[in-house]
Each structure stands twice: as C-alpha cells, then as structure tokens.
Simulated scan of single mutants.
Amino acid sequence: MRTVGTEVRGIRAPIVKEGDQLIDIVVDSLKQSIKEEGIELRDRDVLGITESLVARAQGNYIDIDDIAAEIEEKFEGDSIGIVFPILSRNRFSMILKGIARSGKKIFLQLSYPNDEVGNPLLDARKLYDLKIDSYQHVIEEEEYYEKFGDFKHPFTGVNYVDLYKEIAAETEIEIIAANQPESILDYTDQVIAADIHTRERTKEILKENGAQKVIGLDEICNQDHGKGYNPQFGLLGSNKASDKKLKLFPKDGEQFVEAVQKEIKEFSGKEVEVMIYGDGAFKDPAAKIWELADPVVSPAYTKGLEGTPNEVKLKYLADNDLKDLKGEELLQAMKDEIKEKEADLTANIKSQGTTPRRLTDLLGSLCDLVSGSGDKGTPIILIQGYFDSLADE
C-alpha cells in the first residue's frame, strides 16, 4: 500500500535572462533533478513555471515613456482620473510614474479603508470613531492628512498617499479616498479603471454615470508596437523591473506550455501537465491581504488542467454513511465510495466541504507557496500525485 499522496518539489534552475531558450532550460533542469534526486515521472504529474521566468526570457518589458505615449494617444484634455489602484511599490508605482510623465494632471481615487487586495490606506477604527460613512463619504486630500496623515502600512511602513504624490511629482496630482467609482467624475471625465478583479463592473458604472472616456489597465500596452505588450492583460500583472522599466505578464503562454509538455513526453514517455503560475489565490491571516495582485493565477496551462476537483469528503463519509465501520472494513468501504463516485458531484452532500475552485487556481497557489518570491531559487515546481486518491494503490 502506498503511504504517500501528493509530493511537491521546488526545482532549481539557472538565472534566466532575455533571449534565453527557456523551454530547453526548463526541460534540462527537470532532467537534472530527476537524475540527481531519483525522481520517477508519472502521467498527470504537474510542472509549474513561474510567470516571471517566461516574461523575462521573452523580453516582455516596457518603460515608463511607453506608458506616457499611450496615455497621450488615448486621452484628450489636460487631466486624467485613476480609480481604485492597489497600494503597491512593486505593482502600481511604476504605472503611476508613466502616467505622470504624460504631463496630464492626475486625480487619483483610492478605495478605503483598504484597497482591492486588502492593503490598508488608513486606520479603520478611526473611521468608526469619527463616524465616517465609507460608502458615501469622499475624503479629500486635505481631510486625509488632517485625520489620517500619520498612518503607515503595518507591514511596509509606507504611507501610500505620500508615496504616490512623490512618485507623480513631475506633474500635478490630487488624491481622494472614495468607494463609489463615479466620485471621480466630479473631477474629470477621462478615467482609467485601475482595479484588477472588479475592473469590468467599475468601467460599467463609470460609463453609466457619464464618463466620456474609460479604459482599464488591461487596455494599455496591449498592442504590438515592437516593444513589450500583453494582448489580454496589458499592464495588469506587471512588476517593477527598474526605476524606468516594468516587466509585463508573459504572452504566448499556450505555445510555451504545450512545447514543454511535448519535450517532456519525448524524453520520458509521460504525459505531464504544464502550467505558468503567478500570484497564489490566498489571503494572509495576519496581514488580511489577499495575495492575488495578478489578473489570474495561471495565464496558460495544458488542457488536462481544465476544470475543478470532483472529490468526495472522507470526513463526511466517516461520520455518516460509514459511521458503523472500522479498520480495514472502513478503509475498503471508503475506497469503494471513491471508485463509484458520480462523474459530477456538484451539490452532492458527499462532496460538501471540498474546495470548488479551479484546478489551476489550486495548483498555482501551491506552486507559489513552494517557490516563494525571495531567494529560494526554485522557479520550477514539480507536483506529483495531486490527482491520486486513497483508492489508488
């Protein structure tokens, strides 16, 4: 009887630079690990490659002047509104710097007390003490500094109003805090919806309330002008690369994962699923911050990773249907339940409490937790046995 289920390994790889043959690097790193660690590949193993490796090898970079040029091209007039960006030195700061370089006056609307992924702009307790209705009240910049100006993010130690004003110092910038998207229209009718997961609804509300021009960050740097771009996500998923450059989310991911899968099949004979992963989809219990600042967990994956888990809940069966059984008899009955389960357990009480999330979100989150974002040096993750169950010998 097998005594181990899912196994996850971080695979070390060389430092990847623009122009490197990443497919060869990934496959060679896997081969080396198999040789050194005695790993035996199996069908339906999963290989995850972090999105930064793919984008870096592609050279999918832009600089802040590219952003400025697009802002000047897409927006008329001398002012622009930006609604609901996240509070981030890594994610939004460089985008703001590029928009500021266009020379347009910026009206920046931040949500409060937290941004979309949970970063705090101000002390939520103070809102209650001051009896401020966050659903309706617009906090002007002067009021913010008067009542909340001493606030710093508990983990980064940064006051983001100060930071964003400093970053956009080459133009005029006015910052407000408000939770209704249409509040920005009191200042300008030219608007960028800078939120990530709620952007489509934000754009709808702005248009319904009379905005003349509305685009999302996904509609900036999304065309091929001989430089970096991402046709689906534009600036979403970008990261600061230097004081002037951003690394975009990788493009052409489907071709990449299919090519890696093919190479692995040729040398091993095994059908390994391959995915590109970025941020994991989980929330930190201490910081209360939702990790997912990328537009999706996985921008590309092979076809075998479509769908959601279809699993029975062992705890439920043990406490209910099989509660009178013990030992080997219980184990065998549990295996039989797994083997005979329905092809679709949606709304079936036997699956209650299982996680009805997409496989790519679950697997990508697992990859992100294992690889981390620091100095582990394991940007490739091998997951084995994920699709096995207790009934598999």
Rank of each mutant, 00 (worst) to 15 (best):
E329G: 08
M334A: 15
S389D: 10
I67C: 09
F107P: 00
D66C: 03
K313G: 01
A347Y: 12
L47V: 15
D284P: 02
F107D: 01
E393D: 13
L362W: 02
D218V: 03
E329C: 07
N320K: 08
I139M: 06
I34M: 14
E266F: 07
A333S: 14
S93W: 04
N159V: 04
I82T: 08
T3F: 12
A13C: 14
K126L: 15
L96C: 09
P14F: 00
T378L: 07
G237K: 04
A259P: 01
S134L: 11
I39C: 04
N90Y: 15
Q261D: 03
C367H: 01
L382S: 05
G157P: 03
K97A: 15
G81Y: 10
L206N: 11
L22M: 01
T156E: 14
Y145V: 02
L345T: 08
P154N: 04
L369I: 10
T202A: 12
G280W: 00
I215S: 10
D294A: 11
L87K: 05
Y187C: 07
L87W: 13
T346I: 11
Y277F: 15
N230P: 07
Y61W: 05
V214G: 11
F75N: 08
F155Y: 12
N230L: 06
Y316L: 12
K247P: 00
P120Q: 08
T355V: 11
A194M: 15
E51K: 10
G81M: 13
L390Q: 02
V16N: 00
L108M: 12
N310K: 04
K270W: 04
K213Q: 10
D63R: 10
S29F: 03
S102H: 03
K335D: 05
S298Y: 01
S134T: 03
I215H: 09
V296M: 07
Y145A: 00
T360N: 03
G210R: 07
D195Y: 00
G77T: 13
D392E: 09
K207G: 03
E142I: 10
F151A: 03
A55S: 15
I39P: 00
Q109W: 11
K203N: 06
Y316Q: 02
N159I: 11
L322V: 11
I175W: 06
S33C: 09
L292Q: 14
Q232E: 15
P181A: 06
K227G: 07
G19D: 05
D284Y: 09
L163G: 02
L53V: 07
F148E: 09
G374T: 13
K303S: 15
R199Y: 11
Y160V: 07
K339F: 04
D65T: 13
E140F: 13
D162G: 09
I64Q: 08
K97S: 14
L41A: 05
P356T: 09
E174V: 13
I289T: 08
L248F: 04
L53R: 06
D344W: 13
N239D: 12
G210P: 05
I49C: 01
G385S: 06
S29T: 02
S88F: 09
N348T: 11
T3M: 10
G10R: 04
P295F: 07
Y160A: 04
A13D: 02
L359P: 04
P231V: 01
G157C: 01
K247A: 05
T378C: 06
I167H: 05
N320A: 01
L359E: 00
A300I: 08
K247F: 01
F249K: 05
L108P: 10
S371M: 15
N60G: 06
